[in-house]
Design a binder for these strands. Structure first.
Lengths: 341, 341
DNA sequence: GCATAAGTTCAAAGCGCTTTGAAATATTAA
DNA sequence: TTAATATTTCAAAGCGCTTTGAACTTATGC
């Protein structure tokens, strides 16, 4: 059932039918109803490729998925995507997920900027110096970064104040009397992890506590890696009395390590963890409930997509750049009850 | 840079250029090289919409994402998707993710069958009687179900033997002397959970152990829900001496519940959990290491996509239906060391 | 009653590609 | 050399939609 066939049955031109269906005003209400009626009866669906070809818009936003990289930061991806999806359902757009070997990643981004496959792009997990962003700022394909990166030109982003959050968390620990604070972090070539590191480090210095690199360990986000990191930190002398942990999966492993060493989390060692609100893993349900810096990643997904949508709509390619910083809460729970003085 | 422009610069017709680029034999090798050369220089990218319109293929497979349903079974989605992406990268296709309010889900499936937005569809988490499958078997849009459902017509699926796996696990527990076995399961209106339930129940009956419905609890896949389920089961009298758990997230919560009740997992209560191989949460790294029925969900994602791709290619709409049953291993570890006699 | 404006409708071009069927050219056979 | 064949190229139609610019109706004002 094509527009042509539909219009023939109606005894109208394609123009009129198209306009009736797309809500243009230059169609009489009577005609419009007639068209809509028959379109529904005939179960007519406009062909999206034809539509895209004619309009130059696909109603798709793109997400490039490097297949080796463990699905961005794996466990968080689903939550993030849920937020993206939430907004897109409202805007009636789809996601084009483009699976790509890491080796071809940049090439794919360049290609996307040319081919009109998508109306805009969402960039996740930017590195401290992100090549994708560097390449895209030159193009006129709208894109928004989830996070920030070092780039001399303006670009749209939606981030949380990682540095501030970890500064606050560190300060809290210091004020509770902790002098030896371990950091279990994600890969610090990624900007978010680097920011957290900077927040931690600068706060130590602010309080004139010597920064000890061996108290900082990075790893990929797995329970095991959290376990190993904590185990390693517990070997450090003097033993850290507090742990700052970059995510809930790490926390799982770290707490296992503590217990295995006969230490009780929150009692023998204080813990603050960054919580992205995984609904299946809630910090308040831990034993003890975990003190967190927290910020819903799902909301971030929603907001960033809204921003991208806006950028696509305005089409003022020049400067509709937006930046948004989502709030991070510090929620104090049982795992920082311990006090060292 | 369009085909037209490119062909003009080359002094060739669009036909020839198109054919040269798409590897058709009726182009001399000399010409082909010339074309490819300039195409690369000019950074030419064919417009996908135009291509789709002309060929009727989009090179996209579709995944409908119900935005309320917590991203299929949330934590597993990323892993599954990784497998899907892996295959698609090889086949050079993309995923169209279609975010949809649950209320419009079926409508969207019908629409997809008509509109040519995607070349095929992947169906996840089928219900025991799945309306989506029922609706799609009538269409001629290729689709493959990850899991099975009750449907009188043949359809393609890729599943694991959930029933067999849970039967084996139950048998193991019984043979270890357990008479009171609790089941912590996902939503049993979903086929996979129902199958596991059936495997559990039938095995009990096979050993003439009275099936007690109050030993079966369902819930959504969250740590908390696993905690609650276990807590509830521990109230049961006689107290179950073994727990059969449908996934790792539940296991996290269940073990917390056990410990909170002063019970040591694997010692006071035996545990078998189904493991979908979440790389960030590995059963062998638990304390004690968990006995599992296991089957990599990532591989399932890869295989199901391969099947779909095949179904799209052959285009023998009639009967190219395939079914595949992936193996489930029973891996015995520390959490079933306890023996009751 | 007529000019003007406002409201409707339409034919046709165009979006950028593929593909058919014919034409031009090169090759081979007789 | 010429006819027959194989190879290479092309013009044009078509995919299903949107949108421009013109045309036809109906309403409005004087």
């Amino acid at each position: 059932m094509s527009l042509k066939e539909l219009s023939q049955r109606l005894g109208l031109s394609q123009t009129t039918v198209s306009r009736a269906l797309n809500g243009y005003p230059e169609v009489s209400e009577r005609t419009r109803q007639r068209v809509i009626q028959l379109a529904r009866e005939m179960n007519y669906r406009p062909n999206p490729s034809a539509k895209s070809l004619a309009t130059g818009r696909t109603e798709h936003i793109g997400i490039v998925l490097p297949i080796e990289k463990n699905l961005f930061v794996e466990p968080l991806f689903g939550e993030y995507l849920a937020g993206v999806a939430q907004f897109l359902a409202e805007a009636d757009m789809d996601i084009t997920v483009i699976p790509t070997p890491l080796s071809q990643e940049l090439e794919v981004y360049e290609q996307l900027a040319m081919s009109g496959r998508v109306d805009g792009l969402l960039i996740s997990s930017p590195a401290v110096n992100d090549a994708r962003v560097a390449s895209l700022v030159g193009s006129n394909l709208p894109f928004v970064v989830h996070g920030r990166t070092h780039c001399d030109q303006t670009y749209s982003y939606c981030d949380i104040d990682n540095q501030g959050a970890f500064a606050r968390a560190t300060r809290l620990l210091i004020e509770l009397g902790h002098q030896h604070i371990g950091l279990i972090n994600g890969d610090q070539s990624l900007n978010y992890a680097n920011d957290r590191y900077l927040g931690y480090k600068s706060t130590l210095e602010q309080y004139s506590i010597t920064y000890d690199p061996s108290l900082c360990v990075q790893g990929e986000i797995t329970e095991e890696s959290g376990f190993n990191a904590a185990a390693q930190l517990l070997m450090h002398r003097p033993r850290p009395s507090a742990l700052l942990i970059s995510n809930m999966i790490f926390a799982l492993g770290a707490m296992r390590a503590l217990r295995q060493h006969g230490l009780e989390p929150g009692y023998d060692v204080a813990i603050i963890v960054h919580d992205d609100y995984l609904p299946y893993l809630r910090a308040d349900k831990f034993d003890p409930p975990l003190t967190t810096t927290s910020s819903p990643i799902r909301k971030a997904g929603y907001e960033i997509t809204k921003m991208l949508h806006h950028e696509i709509e305005v089409d003022d390619t020049a400067h509709a750049k937006q930046q948004q910083l989502l709030e991070v809460e510090l929620i104090i729970r049982g795992s920082t009850r311990i006090r060292r003085n």
